[in-house]
Design a protein around this nucleic acid. Structure first.
Lengths: 180, 180
DNA sequence: TTAGAAACGTAGCAAGTGCTACAGGAAGCC
DNA sequence: GGCTTCCTGTAGCACTTGCTACGTTTCTAA
């Protein structure tokens, strides 16, 4: 593994822990045992570092979905997905960072907008594939994946507000509405 | 109206146009025809200014919901709410700023976390009241309001990505799933 | 062995951040 | 007149930001 790849993984850990908004090179570099100077040397600019981190984070979280056992119904699939989101701290953090990146890209600011675009495409494909493995028809899977993704992200957005029970209730309402 | 109130409204306009993340006092003050010095004088700190702006933004967007005509069914209520979100640029911008504030508050950072907490409580009440006006039972309204709010926010989060048609499709799927 | 490239440390720049110190003008009250 | 209180302009502080100039070490290939 190249030095650059090592740095990406370590930087991703740091960003997942400390947040993407307000991320700055010097504290990051200090934690990584290097200097801002070297980060710029390896990545060319902060923007390219951020792009690499977002891609790495997305790859990590998709692996968790790909590893899931298929569910027996759409309703159960929604609940299982939520369980994956909440039970793995890693997935939660990746999702949180996605939300931060999306907020940063809301006005079209780069590299966030482009990174979000790329991540979202892959993410919907991943969700859709899981739904199809769980018996959802190919024609319906992508639409349902989009709805689930939007709702999950919306719940995550208000994460600091509500206790887990309230979030859980929203997801169950969605599962019931979808799965009949 | 006091000088401070004038400043809050003008600052809210500015923040809605330029975004909340990365908002800084000097450009804001320049647009308002004053100085960072005076903003600090009137508000005490940037954090208090931000709190006031978020409150003002929330008040504005709630007024649009309160002004809506009741819908004939839950399904139609969801579609009408989405129409209000998308047709009024003011509401869109307020929602966008809410998303930014929520992202900033994701790790508990103040004053964003507290502002989001306060805004969300009022917002759910507002949505819930509209749903009840539209015939949703009092017992069910708040839960549905939470689900709608989460999904709408999730769709807004990916705003730069998808064309309006795709967003619209997600909302229609939600409306169909909810309204039967 | 030696040339060249890759990797790295030190120091610094220009710009921007929230906020403050200090002074002065204006308005009202006795 | 004096005196206080609100308001405001000028200047600056201490700090952080991404990034760069410059020189040195380390490694590799001929």
């Amino acid at each position: 593994m190249s030095k650059r790849d090592d740095l990406v993984e370590a930087a991703t850990d740091y960003a997942l822990a400390h947040g993407l908004i307000g991320l700055s090179l010097r504290p990051l570099a200090a934690q990584l045992g290097t200097s801002d100077r070297m980060l710029i040397y390896h990545f060319g600019s902060k923007d390219e570092l951020v792009s690499a981190v977002l891609e790495a984070s997305n790859t990590r979280s998709m692996a968790y979905i790909d590893a899931m056992e298929p569910a027996g119904s759409l309703r159960q699939a929604v609940l299982d997905l939520w369980a994956t989101y909440t039970e793995h701290e890693q997935v939660q953090r990746c999702q949180r960072m996605y939300v931060e990146a999306a907020a940063l890209g809301l006005l079209g600011r780069e590299p966030y907008a482009s990174s979000i675009r790329a991540s979202n495409t892959l993410w919907i494909e991943t969700l859709s594939a899981y739904l199809q493995r769980s018996g959802v028809s190919a024609g319906r899977a992508e639409g349902v994946a989009n709805l689930i993704d939007a709702t999950f992200n919306g719940v995550f957005l208000d994460r600091p507000l509500d206790d887990e029970a309230e979030s859980r209730q929203i997801i169950e309402d969605l599962a019931a509405a979808l799965g009949g």
